Amino acid sequence: MAVSDPTLDVEHELLGAYPSLASGAGCVIGCDEVGRGALAGPVAVGLCAIDVNVTAMPAGLRDSKMLSEPRREALAPLAEAWATHSAVGLATAQEVDELGIIACLGLAGKRALLKLHDSGVDLRASVVLLDGSDDWLTRALGTPLRVVTRIKADRDCGSVAAASVIAKVHRDRMMIAYDSLTPGYGWSGNKGYGSAAHMSAIAELGPSELHRRSWLKTPA
């Protein structure tokens, strides 16, 4: 079954649905998470804000899971240049252990939103287009923000696909850099996910400071 490329249809609907967006005061902010199921490393939330002046998406843009690593690397700077603003927020492995993964999605999202705010995005005049059906972002925010959830938004919506690519490349680069700082776990290849080689390394070396220890069956 052929997979269609994302469009900006939903974003255009949202841009026309709210007076603040139609006037150019706010943005549609595509939102997606990366690293939720990893055993090690941070969880990341990417945001891609677009306004009424948005132009055609970068050619070949898709959900990060549908792209090879070289294609993601090539598309990430194009997505960042295309977006009105973009940001990535992180929550550490230690925070995941302390707070749980859902709370850390919200924490990383809040950190990314703060970066957008600091770059000049009027968050109260904007609307967040969040991938999935669970609005974990609203639960984490101390102030109200318009959030629209959509299943498969990372596949269907250009702003969310861009957010997924930007966040994935950002997190992957972090894990590759960690490979030289904490060798032996194969971060460059597995990016913190539970591959067979990664699990063998944990059994041999024990968990590192990058591991979500509450997720491991191996004693800490």
Rank of each mutant, 00 (worst) to 15 (best):
D9W: 09
E73P: 06
R72P: 02
T84H: 12
R111W: 03
A203D: 15
V148Y: 09
A162M: 03
A49I: 03
V34K: 00
D154E: 12
G35E: 06
T143A: 13
C31Y: 04
V147N: 11
G37N: 05
T149R: 07
L78A: 10
M1Q: 09
V3Q: 14
L107R: 11
H198D: 11
A103W: 04
A161Q: 05
G60P: 12
E95I: 09
V88H: 01
P19V: 00
D122G: 09
C48Y: 06
I151V: 15
L90T: 00
L137E: 06
R146E: 09
G158L: 05
N190E: 08
L216F: 12
A87N: 04
D97G: 05
K168Y: 03
A161R: 03
E13I: 02
E33G: 00
L130P: 01
R146G: 10
A56E: 14
I202G: 14
R111G: 04
I151C: 11
L205R: 14
M66S: 14
L210T: 06
R111N: 06
V147Q: 07
A161Y: 00
D118E: 13
V10F: 07
V148N: 07
P70Y: 07
V43I: 08
R111P: 01
D156R: 07
S20L: 04
A108G: 11
G120D: 08
E69N: 13
L8Y: 12
T7K: 10
P207A: 15
C104A: 00
E69C: 12
S86P: 05
R111M: 05
L75C: 03
R173F: 04
T138N: 09
V28D: 00
G186F: 02
V28N: 01
